[in-house]
Amino acid sequence: MATEAAHGAEEGSSLVFHPMDQFIVKPLFGGTDVHWYTITNVTLWMALTIVAVLLLMVLATSGKKQVPSRGQSIAEMAYGFVYKMVEDVSGKDGLRYFPYIFTLFMFIVFANVLGLLPMSFTTTSHFAVTVVLALAVFLGVTILGFVLHGTHFLGLFWVSSAPGPLRPVLAVIEIISYFVRPVSHSIRLAGNVMAGHAVIKVFAGFAAIAAVSPVSILAIVGMYGLEVLVAFIQAYVFTILTCVYLKDALHPAH
């Protein structure tokens, strides 16, 4: 009741803030129930992500030119960027997992950037999406570590360079930090994207007051530029942390 009252009061005033409404999942073709198979705005924007990946990585590179066209050179740049990242951070043997990491990078980059279009829906602002991405990385890397190294993988938690009595304490800390990884990994991405979009919406709400609207529109422009940067940086950070975790699984020696 209290929340309803607050909500009602908000509606009553001239300022209307609904910064979270842009994240609502709704069915595209009528109805209100969201079943697992329902075609929703999530489906639409994920399909657009696939289309964007197709356009960049398949259509733009279809010429296979020695001297690349504009689109092809962007595709090659993305390929080289992620390839070098995997090679530098995870080592040569990490390159076997390059397609998975490149898939993650491409999905996050395009979901973030498409989410910056006006009236769009940002799939990566949902914990459901980022938690699945982060858990896939976490479980994949943990299983890979045990498959490759067996129980030696647990040496990751045993800091043998530390003085003896300190080691159990450090092991507890290491284990906690290991299990916090997927949490921070997922919440960082969704939190950053969501925060930026909500801030833009709040500034947009201020634009209703004529006196402040120029300032608010300038602020939206500034935030939008920052969000474009954040869209790429968060994709980069997610990918590079994946590479770091992969390195831990491939070379668990501490």
Partner: peptide
């Protein structure tokens, strides 16, 4: 960037 990400995670 890794260091920034770790520092930022706590803020998030």
């Amino acid at each position: 960037f890794i260091g920034m990400a770790f520092a930022e995670a706590l803020g998030i």
